[in-house]
Write a protein that binds this DNA or RNA. Structure first.
Lengths: 357, 357
DNA sequence: ATGAAAGCGCTAACAT
DNA sequence: ATGTTAGCGCTTTCAT
């Protein structure tokens, strides 16, 4: 398409201008105020006018400009959801759950992913602040940006999810990390394992600290000393789990079982185990954290501590909705349960040899 | 279907008093126009005033209100990314890639997930239209909403990703679905398989049609007739793959190999195979589509047609950025390559019994 | 080079 | 019950 500049007016070079309240009002023969009243559902407009306005809006295919509206009413219906890693299915499950609730309440979800990078997290929060969001759900990084503090002081309704935000008394939803881990290790101890490894995330994350506490608790309860030398830290990602597992395998007295405290790290650990052609569970028993779609597709199927990821998102969204409605209400911390899902990788139910216990 | 125009009240009517240009201007002793000039980086402001404005802004911790700005300049820096399923890692990889490029270009990404639900897709697009987005990247549903048409007619810059949008001549980035599938089936044929099953997605999706074409092409090239009876359709989800695999396994003359044309369906298929305690690859060889984090954690590791998901997002974002800058430029369709990644599940490299072909 | 003033499209006070 | 009008906070002519 060639665009030439001439003096003659082109038939229609100007794209169809988007209709505004003014045009709708004109067509309906009413004032813009009445149009606004009808469209926002305000009471007290004559039936006849309501009909005319509706018809005019329909005819013009009119949609209110929400930017203008937001400016006027000084507020948006946008909720930001700040997550550390969009490529981690655990977090997308949270997103899915939150989205479900928020959409039903007619909020728009603005997803902000900082990729476990504190610098990006800072930038993101800065943008969010300018964007005029109505509220925020967030899973903070290990070193949470001080901007959370600022937003909180500015009275932005916010709820933290999954991870405890250091020094921020906001609404909160987490899971029973300690209990879940304790159950996993109890299970392994009950199967006769003594040398149990732990592949955990960074201690700066509350989830990692709690899972470690559970690990240790199970040993203590059994009258045993937790094997400090078998506790490894990685970065909650696949590569970290892989390397940690390699280290565990290379030990002179290698553990007979391992508890891997996150979904992606478990994938890495399995890869390392397969590379060394170690049989699961006879050479090494494995329990993971977080029940993922692939858990039952693995061979053997993976024993895991299941956490209700989607429910975490749903609950966070509900907490936020409540706070939005009643800003002064008391703060709440909701803790969702975890459950040990025993499959074959821990050795109790080897499907190929269904020997009775 | 009746469509009523939304009329919800904004969540926050009284935001905490936040500084405005006026206050900055007052503190700096200049006009609001000058403040705006300095902050938007317009040329021709005395060095001295620039300093004063900057200092005042800093002191007040001022951030321009982007809602007001967007209204004034009649445009936003928000790009919508519309995807069918946020819990599918393939799509989140696309998101990750697009996000990377868009953030660098100082755009905000608005993620819209319609959960493979056409009705939700409609609603989403309607909202997006009111939101005044600058552009859109989308992977349409099987029956793409007619609202795409409308947005396109309204000259919204948009690029489709992964799936061909029916009857919409927008910029486009896809992968070599046919070639990839052909290579996968060629590989299985070369290994001596004759009865090869195909578990595919719905024919309404271009990706599924192309993958089927590749499947058939490989047979034709080998002088064979494609086994129509072994071609099953599911919904691209895990449950669909599971059920389809069950059907395949239950056949009187069960296939000796199966090509599963999507990531989640492959997970389902594997689950069915494990339940029947069939050995991979000796009882049934498996090739999947899309290289996922778990592929190397499976036992045996999964042979797949790898597609560059992240790159798909990156490319889509670049296409959009280009079009944003030059709306009249020629339309482009970029096709990214796929590659067959041979691992043990197809039988060529069984790690436990490295028998020669 | 800077300021005054006019809106962007909408809703809410205030009139009538 | 409806219309008139005044901004929301910002950018951008248009003057000077």
């Amino acid at each position: 398409v060639k665009k030439s500049i001439t003096n003659s007016k082109p038939a229609r070079l100007t794209p169809p201008a988007v209709p505004t309240v003014k045009e709708v009002a004109g067509l309906a023969g009413v004032s813009t105020a009445t149009v606004s009243r009808v469209l926002t559902g305000a009471a007290g407009v004559r039936e006849e006018l309501v009909r005319r306005v509706r018809a005019a809006a329909q005819k013009l295919n009119y949609r209110p400009n929400s930017v203008a509206r937001n400016l006027r009413v000084r507020g948006t219906r946008t909720i930001a959801l700040v997550i550390p890693d969009i490529e981690n299915p655990f977090f997308t499950s949270i997103v899915g759950g939150a989205e479900h609730v928020l959409q039903a309440a007619n909020y728009t979800l603005l997803l902000a992913n900082f990729n476990e990078d504190s610098e990006r997290e800072d930038l993101l929060l800065d943008t969010l602040r300018a964007e005029g969001i109505a509220g925020m759900i967030f899973a903070p990084s290990a070193n949470p940006s001080r901007l959370y503090q600022e937003l909180w002081k500015a009275k932005l309704p916010m709820v933290a999810v999954s991870r405890l935000p250091d020094g921020l008394s906001v609404d909160l939803v987490t899971v029973e990390n300690r209990e879940g881990s304790r159950d996993a290790v109890r299970h392994l101890l009950a199967l006769g394992h003594k040398r149990i490894g732990l592949i955990n995330g960074p201690a700066s994350l509350s989830t990692a600290r709690e899972r470690q506490a559970g690990f240790e608790q199970a040993f203590s309860e059994a009258g045993l000393t937790p094997p400090k030398d078998l506790v490894l830290r990685a970065d909650f990602r696949q590569g970290g789990g892989y390397r940690a597992m390699k280290t565990l395998i290379g030990m002179p007295k290698r553990p007979t079982a391992v508890f891997v405290a996150s979904n992606l790290m478990t994938l890495g650990a399995l890869q390392a185990i397969h590379e060394h052609e170690l049989d699961i569970p006879s050479a090494i028993a494995v329990v993971g954290f977080d029940d993922m779609p692939w858990a039952t597709s693995l061979r053997p199927p993976l024993t895991v501590v299941a956490q209700p990821a989607r429910e975490l998102g749903v609950t966070a969204a509900k907490l936020l909705l409540d706070r939005l409605q009643e800003p002064a209400r008391a703060r709440r911390h909701i803790i969702l349960g975890t459950s040990l899902v025993v499959r074959a990788s821990s050795g109790s139910l080897s499907p190929s040899r269904a020997s009775s216990g």
